[in-house]
Simulated scan of single mutants.
Amino acid sequence: MSLDDLNREQKRSLRRMGALDEQGKPTRAQRTATAKNARTTPPQYLREVRDEMRKVAWPTRDEVVRYSIVVVCTVIVYAALVSGLDFGFGFLSEWLYG
C-alpha cells in the first residue's frame, strides 16, 4: 500500500501520530528502550488484585440462578437431540445392515 492509496483523513491521522512529516513523507520514529520494571512484591500483587476485583460488575444471585437454569435447560435439550439422532441412526443402520 502506498501513500497514494490513503485518503486525506488517513494522512492527517498519520501526521498527528508522527508517522508522516509535513511534506507527507513517512518518518521513522526512534524506538525508546523500555526500562525493566522492578519485580512486584506479593503484598503489592494482592493489593492490585483486590483493587481490580472491586471493579468487577458481579451478577446478582437472581441473575446467576436465571443463567444457570438457561444453561441446564440448553444442555438437556442438546443432549436429548444428540441422543435422539444417535438412536435414529442406530436404528436405521440396524435396519439397513442387520
Rank of each mutant, 00 (worst) to 15 (best):
residue 91 F to L: 13
residue 35 A to F: 04
residue 16 R to L: 10
residue 50 R to D: 15
residue 27 T to E: 06
residue 94 E to I: 01
residue 41 T to E: 09
residue 90 G to F: 05
residue 10 Q to W: 07
residue 3 L to A: 07
residue 13 S to Q: 10
residue 3 L to W: 02
residue 14 L to H: 02
residue 83 S to R: 05
residue 71 V to S: 10
residue 50 R to L: 13
residue 39 R to D: 13
residue 49 V to G: 00
residue 80 A to R: 08
residue 29 A to L: 12
residue 61 R to P: 00
residue 30 Q to T: 13
residue 57 A to E: 15
residue 7 N to L: 07
residue 70 V to N: 09
residue 16 R to Q: 08
residue 14 L to A: 02
residue 17 M to V: 11
residue 87 F to V: 08
residue 34 T to F: 00
residue 62 D to T: 08
residue 93 S to R: 05
residue 79 A to T: 06
residue 22 E to C: 11
residue 75 V to Q: 00
residue 98 G to P: 10
residue 44 Q to P: 01
residue 27 T to D: 01
residue 5 D to W: 10
residue 98 G to E: 02
residue 41 T to S: 15
residue 55 K to W: 03
residue 15 R to Q: 10
residue 96 L to D: 03
residue 46 L to W: 03
residue 49 V to P: 01
residue 55 K to L: 15
residue 23 Q to R: 12
residue 48 E to F: 11
residue 57 A to D: 15
residue 1 M to F: 05
residue 59 P to N: 14
residue 25 K to H: 15
residue 13 S to C: 06
residue 69 I to D: 06
residue 50 R to E: 15
residue 26 P to Y: 03
residue 82 V to S: 04
residue 73 C to N: 05
residue 94 E to Q: 07
residue 70 V to W: 08
residue 89 F to V: 12
residue 9 E to W: 06
residue 3 L to V: 09
residue 36 K to I: 13
residue 12 R to P: 00
residue 81 L to W: 07
residue 62 D to P: 00
residue 47 R to F: 04
residue 89 F to G: 00
residue 60 T to K: 04
residue 10 Q to C: 08
residue 17 M to Q: 15
residue 9 E to S: 07
residue 5 D to K: 12
residue 73 C to R: 05
residue 77 V to R: 03
residue 90 G to R: 08
residue 40 T to D: 04
residue 10 Q to T: 14
residue 36 K to W: 04
residue 34 T to I: 04
residue 45 Y to C: 12
residue 7 N to G: 11
residue 66 R to A: 05
residue 38 A to D: 07
residue 20 L to I: 08
residue 90 G to Q: 06
residue 10 Q to R: 13
residue 76 I to Q: 04
residue 38 A to F: 02
residue 29 A to V: 06
residue 40 T to G: 02
residue 19 A to C: 12
residue 79 A to K: 02
residue 74 T to R: 01
residue 73 C to V: 10
residue 62 D to F: 01
residue 2 S to T: 15
residue 34 T to H: 02
residue 77 V to P: 03
residue 5 D to V: 08
residue 34 T to A: 12
residue 33 A to N: 08
residue 66 R to F: 06
residue 29 A to S: 09
residue 54 R to L: 11
residue 44 Q to A: 12
residue 77 V to Y: 07
residue 77 V to G: 02
residue 75 V to C: 07
residue 74 T to W: 04
residue 39 R to C: 02
residue 51 D to S: 14
residue 17 M to N: 13
residue 98 G to A: 05
residue 28 R to P: 00
residue 69 I to C: 02
residue 92 L to I: 07
residue 66 R to C: 00
residue 67 Y to P: 00
residue 64 V to R: 13
residue 56 V to K: 13
residue 6 L to W: 01
residue 4 D to F: 06
residue 22 E to V: 02
residue 22 E to F: 13
residue 68 S to V: 00
residue 14 L to N: 00
residue 81 L to T: 02
residue 77 V to T: 10
residue 28 R to V: 13
residue 32 T to G: 05
residue 1 M to D: 11
residue 47 R to K: 11
residue 74 T to A: 09
residue 13 S to I: 12
residue 4 D to E: 15
residue 84 G to M: 12
residue 89 F to W: 08
residue 81 L to P: 03
residue 15 R to T: 04
residue 84 G to T: 00
residue 22 E to Y: 13
residue 94 E to M: 09
residue 51 D to V: 04
residue 57 A to I: 10
residue 27 T to M: 14
residue 34 T to E: 08
